[in-house]
Amino acid sequence: MTITIERKWNDINAVDGVSDAEDNLDVSYLLHADNDEDEQDIVTFIQNDANIPYEYLGLQKTRVGFGRHEDTEDYWSATASYASKASGLAVVKLAAGQSRWSVIGGSGQTARRTFAKALVSEHHPTGASRPTLSGTKAELALGLTYRDGKYEIDGIDVPIGSTQVAVQTVWSHANAVTGGRVVAAAEYADIHVTNLVPWNGFAAGTLQIESIQSRQRAGDDPDWDVDMLFNFSRNLTNINLGSGVVIPSKLGHQVLDILYAPETVGGFPCSVIKRAAVLDVFDSISFASVFGI
């Protein structure tokens, strides 16, 4: 990879080298890439503090934007924004073992599932026929429907994005690579595991990992910057579905699946609850042992 800075210029607002709350500046760069570098190569280059410094004229970097010039494939522009620590915009660089947390609105994404991994509990209305599926081949089915005299599996949309919790942390090189955290985190993020035990104040079962990004710092600093995103869903107790069906408890990312079947009530055909089940769809692990915080 061959990327060079061909030009650099500042857009300065009241910067005198002594950081005040109102101080801020943008530093613009013209980058030349002469070996068919792609977008990821540019990202790697601008994330290196040796190329675009973290601190400049007493200020700290808040963001870096970049884009390719429309009239050429070889030139890119990048702009680094700097602000005073006192402004609240500058983000203090974390050291190994430290973390930064934030809560954000979720994506509301779902994934289609037809079977769960474990049946947690099964419940039925009072005084009605009870299709007990525990111990049968159908006990893990999701979206059971009674149709044309038989039960069919339609599947259900399982939420994998609600309120979200973002975590930034730093792993030492030994923990990230030798300790296997990079590989383990990638594997568990791929299957969206949930927290088996309480973690940093969050109750067991309420967090599910959505994504993780880890990258080694450039230069003489061997540590790894890590960004993790978790989906949050609160645990529920005493869920009253009516017809005498009350679910004692459901962990945040467990699934509540309800089976309805046709029945004549008061002379009118309608669908009534025949079975409600709480199921585990995702694997669970101890987050502290994998993520190190």
Rank of each mutant, 00 (worst) to 15 (best):
D23T: 07
N24Q: 08
L30S: 09
L31I: 12
D34G: 13
D34Q: 02
E37Q: 15
V43M: 00
T44K: 14
P53F: 00
K61S: 15
V64Q: 06
G65I: 04
G67K: 00
E70M: 10
Y82R: 05
A83I: 01
A86Q: 13
V92D: 15
A96L: 03
V103T: 14
G105A: 12
Q109E: 15
T114M: 02
F115S: 14
V120T: 12
H124P: 14
T126M: 11
T126R: 12
A128L: 13
S129W: 06
K137R: 06
A138D: 14
L144I: 14
D148A: 14
K150N: 13
Y151T: 13
E152I: 14
E152K: 15
I153K: 01
D157F: 13
Q164H: 04
W171I: 12
S172W: 06
V177F: 04
T178V: 13
G180Y: 01
V182N: 07
A189T: 10
D190I: 00
H192F: 09
H192P: 00
F202R: 04
A204E: 15
I212C: 12
R217C: 09
A218V: 02
D225T: 12
D225W: 05
M228P: 02
L236Y: 03
I239M: 13
L241E: 01
P248Q: 09
L256T: 07
I258Q: 05
L259F: 13
A261H: 11
S271P: 07
A277T: 15
I285C: 07
